[in-house]
């Protein structure tokens, strides 16, 4: 369980996150939703220790962030963070070198699934292909959690479907997924839990199934209700 308790963050006196509290369970897909600048990406970065927090605590299965966190939680940022001159095969080699949780077979499988060319250089990939390769790097780790920042941003419909396919496949399996997205409609049927953010504050977090059955509302309905009022 990824657990955030009253997490706050300031950036030169401006509060970016205020008392953010939520959990992301293993075996569930949790989605952070909010308008631009609500602090979605920042939350993911705080979980990965890429920006400091100024209050509260973050625990992963009860442990504070440490070097082992990165073996248990794989992070897929909103861009392909691989030097442009690197070939995809080199990038896979690089990952294998550093991550003991790297699953070579799964990587090969994903490469085939997304139909990626090992000899291509990272800098020459189109946006959609880069996003797919980015998923390969994140999902080929035998991690307990996967964190994804805008996995669908700027990706055409066909590819979007191909990526969405992954979520329900063996490739994600029983892992906990925490993602941010704008394209809530596309993934609504996938997600188990939604956390709505407004100006760095958790406006509402809910189980999608519950809202659907008890309030007969879609996630988008709740979003409109909470964020636009």
């Amino acid at each position: 369980m990824i657990e955030l308790v009253r997490v706050s963050q300031k950036y030169t006196y401006k509060e970016v996150l205020k008392d953010v509290t939520f959990t992301a369970e293993k075996g569930q897909i949790t989605c952070l939703l909010g308008l631009n600048g609500a602090g979605k990406s920042t939350i993911l970065k705080t979980i990965m220790g890429l920006t400091p927090i100024h209050g509260g605590s973050i625990r992963i299965d009860g442990e504070e962030i440490n070097q082992n966190t990165y073996e248990r939680v794989s992070y897929i940022p909103d861009h392909l963070a691989i030097p442009a001159s690197m070939k995809l095969s080199d990038a896979l080699r690089f990952m294998e070198d550093f991550y003991s949780c790297w699953n070579k077979d799964r990587a090969n499988e994903l490469m085939r699934f997304f139909d990626l060319d090992l000899d291509e250089r990272a800098g020459r990939l189109s946006k959609g292909t880069a996003a797919k390769f980015n998923l390969v790097l994140g999902l080929a780790q035998d991690s307990d959690y996967v964190i994804m920042d805008e996995p669908f941003a700027g990706i055409d419909l066909f590819n979007r479907e191909r990526i969405a396919e992954v979520f329900s496949s063996e490739l994600v399996g029983n892992r906990g997924v925490l993602l941010t997205t704008h394209e809530v409609k596309e993934v609504e049927y996938l997600i188990d839990k939604a956390v709505l953010l407004r100006d760095g504050v958790v406006a509402r977090s809910f189980e999608c199934e519950q809202v659907r059955s008890e309030e007969s509302k879609s996630v988008v309905d709740v979003m409109k209700e909470v964020l636009l009022t």
Binding site: M48, G49, L50, Y70, Y75, P77, H79, L80, A81, I82, P83, A84, A122, G123
Partner: peptide, 9 residues
């Protein structure tokens, strides 16, 4: 590439 994302994770 903003490689820092990878380097620090």
């Amino acid at each position: 590439d903003k490689f820092a994302y990878r380097l620090f994770t």
